[in-house]
């Protein structure tokens, strides 16, 4: 386990940079993780996805699949890939401070 500092707060992350404790997350931390991943600014559409991921995880204990994300978050799949290049489910989960999604779909 590694400790890194985001937005002045030391947080624990796994080897791939996902927060180990979901409750250490806040919006400034999200913005800094996003910036590190090449998303300079999070807009309303990004936040819609991030908040959806987070609440789905807190409710079900697992990150939603990309299919559910495309159907239920209000952001269609095409746009998800524009908002989060290099894999929306993984990157949005990382920014949302939840564990890496483990599904194959």
């Amino acid at each position: 386990m590694t400790t890194v500092t985001y937005a002045g707060t030391p947080v624990e992350v796994d080897p791939e940079g996902f927060l180990s404790q979901t409750d250490q997350w806040n919006e400034q931390i999200a913005a800094e993780i996003a910036a590190e991943a090449g998303i300079a600014e999070l807009n309303d559409r990004h936040w819609l996805v991030i908040n959806f991921m987070r609440s789905a995880y807190l409710e079900n204990g697992a990150a939603p699949s990309i299919r559910t994300l495309g159907k239920a978050s209000g952001v269609p799949i095409k746009e998800l890939y524009d908002l989060f290049p290099k894999g929306p489910a993984k990157l949005a989960a990382k920014i949302a401070g939840i564990p890496k999604p483990r599904g194959c779909i």
Binding site: I66, K90, C104
Partner: peptide, 11 residues
């Protein structure tokens, strides 16, 4: 199809 979708999910 699962391999293709999985590839896209990994960028």
């Amino acid at each position: 199809l699962i391999m293709a979708n999985g590839a896209r999910m990994e960028g």
